[in-house]
Computed example of a mutant assay.
Amino acid sequence: MLHHKIIVLTGGADGIGWECAKAYSKAGATVCILDKNPIAENKLNELETAQKTAIVCNLVNENEVADAFKTIIEKFGAIDAIHNNAGIAHPSKTLDQTTDAEWDLLMNVNLKSILYTTRHGIGHLKKTKGCILNTSSMVGTIGQNNHAVYVATKGAINALTKAMALDYAPYRIRVNAVSPAAINTPTLQSWSKEQPNKEEIQHYLDKLQPLGSMPAGDVIADACLFLLSDAARFITGTILPVSGGAELGYRTII
């Protein structure tokens, strides 16, 4: 489905991002991972396509993002898609308890990184009539207690996705977002262990989604694969829930 496509994937070293990298590679894409953490060569070689690269990149540093895109173009010649997946959720706080530094970090990683990848990638996407995919979250639509700034960034991603879809439609560039609920990733496991009621949290996460217990990131990767493929060629401005029905109706969670 992604044969010969060159995809830039941020935050691809683990979790949902790594599952996406594997899915894109299996579908025939060249995967270019930008992540603050290095990826060992033996892990990178798990990707099925011969062409792939991983660049250590601080996504809130514009110069590093610009250099990464330059490297990708020099190596592969084009960019067909950008998947803005990098994000952080820490800290778990109400708005009044959030420090300026915590606010700035969440806004920079979750939002400014999209500004930089778009600024340095849009010219290449115009040439290929490519697409952009943003990783959002159900909390951006339904909210979440004790995560005010994280929720704000995901709500902003939803609104930004729609604005970008309109702005870039004249260039035949599609812009969509995927919206997970609870996904079993290292980030979520780390968060759950920090909570005072760890056992209750795990039970809650497993019961959150009517379709079944908390899945791994491959369910998100499958949806992302579709949105980046030509099968979704007339879909833009969509915030696609991949939530197992977590947002549906009042339910008793026992």
Rank of each mutant, 00 (worst) to 15 (best):
H3V: 08
S136C: 13
I82G: 14
V149P: 10
R233G: 05
Q189S: 02
K93F: 00
I79H: 13
S92T: 13
K112N: 11
W103S: 15
L34R: 02
N58V: 07
N146F: 06
I6F: 03
L166N: 07
R251I: 00
A216L: 10
H4Y: 09
I253G: 13
K126T: 14
Y116Q: 13
L248R: 14
P215C: 09
I39V: 12
E74A: 15
L208E: 12
M107G: 03
N158L: 03
S229D: 07
I82H: 05
K162F: 01
E194M: 11
N145P: 11
A68L: 00
K112C: 08
V31S: 13
A23Y: 01
L240I: 06
N61K: 13
V178Y: 00
I173H: 03
L125G: 02
W18G: 11
T118E: 11
E74Y: 03
E64P: 10
G217M: 06
L211R: 05
G217K: 10
K127R: 15
D230Y: 03
A221F: 04
K112P: 07
D104V: 06
I55T: 14
P180Q: 03
P180V: 01
I183W: 04
P196E: 12
H124G: 02
L205K: 04
F234G: 00
E247L: 08
I142G: 02
I239T: 14
I55P: 15
K52Q: 11
T71L: 13
A181D: 07
L227F: 00
L47Y: 09
Q195A: 04
S192Y: 03
A156H: 00
P241N: 13
G87S: 15
S92W: 07
H83T: 01
S136Q: 08
G12D: 08
V109C: 05
K193C: 06
I239K: 05
L225I: 02
K126H: 08
A54Y: 00
E247N: 12
I183F: 00
K70H: 10
Q195H: 08
E46L: 10
W191R: 09
L34S: 09
L211N: 04
Y116D: 01
S213F: 04
H147K: 08
L106K: 01
G87H: 05
L240G: 09
S92L: 12
V175I: 13
G12E: 07
Q144C: 09
K22I: 08
G237T: 08
L44I: 04
Y204C: 00
P170L: 00
K75I: 06
T117R: 12
N145L: 11
T99S: 13
I6Y: 06
T185C: 11
I173D: 06
N134L: 11
A40G: 06
R233Y: 01
S192F: 01
E102D: 07
Q144M: 09
T252W: 10
K127Q: 12
P215T: 06
K22R: 15
N158R: 07
N110P: 05
N158S: 05
N45W: 01
I235F: 02
E46Y: 01
G244H: 00
E200L: 10
Y204N: 03
V56Y: 04
M138H: 03
D230V: 02
A29T: 02
A13K: 10
T238R: 15
V178E: 05
K75G: 04
N84H: 12
A23W: 00
F76C: 05
A221L: 04
Q202H: 03
P38K: 14
E64T: 08
W18V: 07
A40H: 14
C224M: 12
H147D: 10
